[in-house]
């Protein structure tokens, strides 16, 4: 047993610097995934069955293969590809890699929200002669998005815990700082414990917040279902 409290307290300020990079990167990846998620939804609604199933399989492929390998592909392999290849800095590569990976999950959330909208709402908007654009922005999306908010929040927490993958391509955030400190002083356990504590400190309260949100929404929608 060689646990050192001095090392533990010494690494807290060091690693807390990386905390903001981890949080910032999480938000950037999340934003990218949230926007790109609509792309898959859009593709899944194209009338051509062949196009739909091709994009369905692409999304399935991205969803069921490791994000770490995808990250390596974007960071190491992309620059080597002739013509289209460009070197990306680690941050951009991480945002692209994790963002695309999680966009396939976000699209499932959107899809479940859209499917939960009552069929009568579609028919009514057609009957009222609304344009496609009006139908989506005024009728469908305002009803489809709110019930998915707890799920969207869950994915924010999940992505927060996946972002340390970016340290493998050289993004200097919490995990990278801890590993650097470790290889310099051969003290790994203490800085890694600090990293774990920081993760817990942020994700646990957010998880509680989301389960509260979930209960609130469930109550709201139950009430609606009862009165209608």
């Amino acid at each position: 047993m060689n646990w050192s409290w001095t090392v533990f307290f010494e690494t807290i300020p060091l690693i807390s610097k990386g905390l903001w990079i981890t949080v910032g990167l999480t938000l950037a990846c999340y934003l990218f995934a949230a926007i790109f998620g609509f792309f898959w939804v859009f593709m899944s609604r194209i009338p051509s069955k062949i196009v739909r199933s091709i994009f369905g399989w692409i999304a399935e492929f991205i969803r069921s293969t490791p994000p770490l390998v995808q990250l390596f592909f974007i960071f190491y392999a992309w620059p080597v590809i002739p013509v289209v290849g460009v070197s990306l800095n680690p941050f951009v590569a991480a945002i692209l890699g994790l963002g695309i990976h999680f966009s396939t999950y976000m699209s499932e959330v959107y899809r479940s929200g859209i499917e939960s909208v009552d069929k009568g709402q579609w028919e009514a908007s057609t009957a009222l002669n609304l344009s496609t654009r009006q139908k989506w922005t005024k009728i469908i999306l305002p009803q489809a998005i709110p019930p998915t908010i707890p799920m969207l929040g869950n994915y924010l927490i999940i992505m927060f815990k996946e972002v340390p993958l970016a340290s493998t391509i050289g993004v200097v955030a919490m995990l990278h700082i801890a590993n650097d400190y470790g290889s310099q002083y051969y003290k790994f356990v203490e800085p890694l414990t600090v990293v774990a504590l920081f993760f817990l400190l942020l994700s646990y309260p957010s998880a509680i917040l989301i389960s509260k949100l979930e209960k609130k929404y469930n109550r709201k929608f139950d009430k609606k279902a009862m009165t209608s």
């Binding site: 815990k161 995990l175 890694l192």
Partner: peptide, 13 residues
């Protein structure tokens, strides 16, 4: 509440 990759490193050390 903590990340798998952090746990993996933590356990291995």
């Amino acid at each position: 509440g903590t990340s798998l990759i952090v746990q993996l490193f933590w356990f291995s050390y």
